[in-house]
Amino acid sequence: MSDLLGYLLTGLGIGAGFALVGSGMVVIHRVTRVVNLAQGAFAVLAAMLTSALLATGLPHGLAEGAGVLVAAGAGVLTGIVAIGRPGTEPGAALIITLGLGVLAYAVEVTVWGDQPRSYAGLPGAVTLGGARIQAHYLLVIAVTLPVFAALMAFFRGTDPGKALTACAENPYAARVVGIDVRRMGLLAFGLGGALGGLAGVLLTPVQQVTFDSDVTLIVNGFAAAVLGGLTRPGVALAGGLLLGVAQTLIAGYGGGAHQLEIALLVMLAVMVAQAVRAGSVREVAR
C-alpha cells in the first residue's frame, strides 16, 4: 500500500514533466498547426543552461528562471525560422523544427559536451502515509499545477489568451479583426518554449539530462498531447500525469525498463483509434 502511494506520487512528478512538454506542443500546434519537433530541445537547453549557471554559483530559482527564459527565447527563434516565411506549410514547418532540434544537438554538444548533467533539486525525502519519496517530486507537482492553472486563466480570462484561441479557431477572422496571426504564432512558440524549459529544469534533478534526452521527452509529451487531439492543454495535463503514473507503476511492479515503450504503444493506439473514429465519421457524413 505504501509502495503504491510512493509510485503514484513519483509518477505524478514525472508525468507533470511530460504534461508540460506536451502542453507546450499543444499551445504551439493549436495556433500554428505546426507540431514542434524541437519541443524536447527546449527542455534540454534550459536544463543544461541551469546546470551551468548553478555551477557558477548562481542561486536556485534564479538559475532555473534564466533557463526557462532562454527556452522561451529559443521558442520564439524556432517560430521565426519555422513559420516566419508567409505561406510555409505546416508539413514543411515540421521538417524545419526537426532540423532545429538537431541544430540544438550541435549547440549543446559544443557548449556543454556530450556527458549527462544533473544538479541537486529540493533535498531530502518526505514520508507520506508510510511511503518515502524524494521531496523534489512534490516540488515538481507543486510547481506544475499552478502553472497549468495560470495557463488556463490566461487562455480563458485574458484578451491575448482569447486572441490566441481565436487564431486557432479561425485565422482568417483573426486577421479580419486585426490580430496579427503570425505574431500570435510566435507568442505561442515562446510560451511553448517556456513550458518545455520548465519541464527541463524541474525534471533534471531526478532524471539526468543528456543532449539527446529530448527524444524521450518529446515522445512522452506528444503521447500526452495527442490524447486531446493536440488542441487541449487540459487533456495534455491529464494525459501526461496518467502516462507518468502508468510508467512508474509498471517499472515499480517489475516491468523493468519498458517505460518508454509503454508511452509509445499508448500513443500509437490512441492515434490509430482516433484515425479510425475520424474515418468512420467521414464515411457516415458521405
Binding site: 515540421l94 515522445v219 495527442v226 504503444l265 500513443m267 484515425a275
Partner: peptide, 17 residues
C-alpha cells in the same frame, strides 16, 4: 491510417520500439 505529423511520430515510435 495516420497522416502528417501523426504518421511521423508513429514511424519514430516504430524505430524506438
Amino acid at each position: 491510417r495516420l497522416r502528417g505529423h501523426h504518421l511521423a511520430f508513429a514511424t519514430l515510435a516504430v524505430h524506438l520500439i
